[in-house]
C-alpha cells in the first residue's frame, strides 16, 4: 500500500531524513520507534505531503502510484489520513462544522462524537484550549469522518492520561480492524497504519506487524515490533546506532 524508496527530505535547506526505505502493506500496522528528534514526525508529515518538507531524493508510492509531489489534499483524497501530534489552533472553526465537511455529510458528527465522548467539544473551536487527550480524540473524530485507508498516527498516546489511553487505543483498533477478528482477513480487508510510539503503550490495543527504528534521520533496522520494544527498553537506541555502524 505504502512504499518509500531512498527518501531524502529537507526543511529550509537542512537535511532531516536520508536513505529512508519503508513499507506498509495492505491491512498491516507498522510501528516507527526512535528517540526524540530522530525525524519520525518529519517522516509522517512528509508522507502526508506538508509543503514545508521537501523531498529532494527518492519517492513515495501509494497503491503503486508515485505521490511524491502531490499536494496534501490529493493525498487525502487517495486515502491517506494523519493524526497530528501538535495540530494548529483553528480559531473560529467549530469541530462540528469540520467533522461535517470532512464526512461530506455522510455521517452525523453527533454519532461519531458520542463514540469518542466528544459531544461537548463539537461546538468549540478545533484544538483551541484542548488538553492532550482531547486533541487525540478530536483527531480521531476527524479521521473517523475522513475514513482513510492508511492511518499515519503520530504518538497517539503522548500527553494522554491513563483513562483516555484506553479510549484512544480502543478507537484506533476499531478504526483499523473494522470488527475483523481473523488475522488473515485483517491483512486483506483491514486498514493500514503507520504508528509512531515512544512508550509502546498503544501496542496493548493494536496488533503491530512490523517495527522500524529511525535514528539520526534514517532507518536503522526493522523487525518484530514487540521484540524491538523490549530491546529498546533494555538498552535504549544507542545500541541500534552502533549496530548500524558496524554493518
Amino acid at each position: 500500500m505504502l512504499k518509500i524508496e531512498n527518501l531524502r527530505v529537507e526543511v529550509n535547506g537542512k537535511t532531516l531524513l536520508h536513505d529512508v526505505n519503508l513499507e506498509v502493506g495492505r491491512g498491516y500496522t507498522n510501528v516507527l520507534f526512535g528517540p526524540n528528534g530522530a525525524g519520525k514526525s518529519a517522516l509522517m508529515r512528509t508522507i502526508m505531503g506538508f509543503s514545508e518538507y521537501k523531498v529532494v531524493e527518492g519517492r513515495i508510492l501509494f497503491n503503486g502510484e508515485d505521490i511524491t509531489h502531490l499536494p496534501v489534499d490529493e493525498r487525502a483524497r487517495r486515502g491517506l489520513g494523519i493524526m497530528m501530534q501538535r495540530p494548529p489552533n483553528m480559531s473560529g472553526i467549530k469541530l462540528r462544522d469540520l467533522v461535517h465537511t470532512v464526512a461530506k455529510g455522510e455521517k452525523d458528527p453527533e454519532d461519531l462524537a458520542e463514540n469518542l465522548d466528544m459531544q461537548r467539544f463539537l461546538d468549540r473551536d478545533v484544538n483551541v484550549g484542548f488538553s492532550g487527550g482531547e486533541i487525540k480524540r478530536s483527531e480521531l473524530l476527524q479521521l473517523a469522518a475522513q475514513n482513510p485507508n492508511l492511518y499515519l498516527l503520530d504518538e497517539p498516546e503522548s500527553g494522554v492520561d491513563l483513562v483516555s489511553i484506553g479510549q484512544v487505543g480502543t478507537k484506533i483498533s476499531e478504526l483499523l480492524n473494522r470488527e475483523i477478528e481473523c488475522p488473515g482477513e485483517r491483512c486483506k480487508k483491514g486498514k493500514s497504519a503507520l504508528i509512531i510510539t515512544h512508550t509502546g503503550q498503544i501496542l496493548d490495543y493494536v496488533q503491530a506487524d512490523r517495527g522500524y527504528i529511525l535514528c539520526n534521520g534514517t532507518i536503522m533496522c526493522s523487525g518484530n515490533p514487540l521484540e524491538m520494544l523490549e530491546e529498546i527498553k533494555k538498552k535504549g537506541y544507542e545500541e541500534c546506532v552502533k549496530c548500524k555502524l558496524m554493518k
Binding site: 495540530p87 480559531s91 473560529g92 469540520l98 475522513q146
Partner: peptide, 26 residues
C-alpha cells in the same frame, strides 16, 4: 497561516475550501 490551510487539506478539503473555512472562522 499555511499550517492551518494544510491541516484542513490533510482532511481532504481543497485549498479553496480550506481557505474559505478559515476566512469564515476568522
Amino acid at each position: 497561516a499555511q499550517d492551518q490551510v494544510e491541516y484542513l487539506m490533510a482532511r481532504g478539503l481543497t485549498e479553496d475550501e480550506a481557505v474559505g473555512m478559515i476566512v469564515r472562522g476568522f
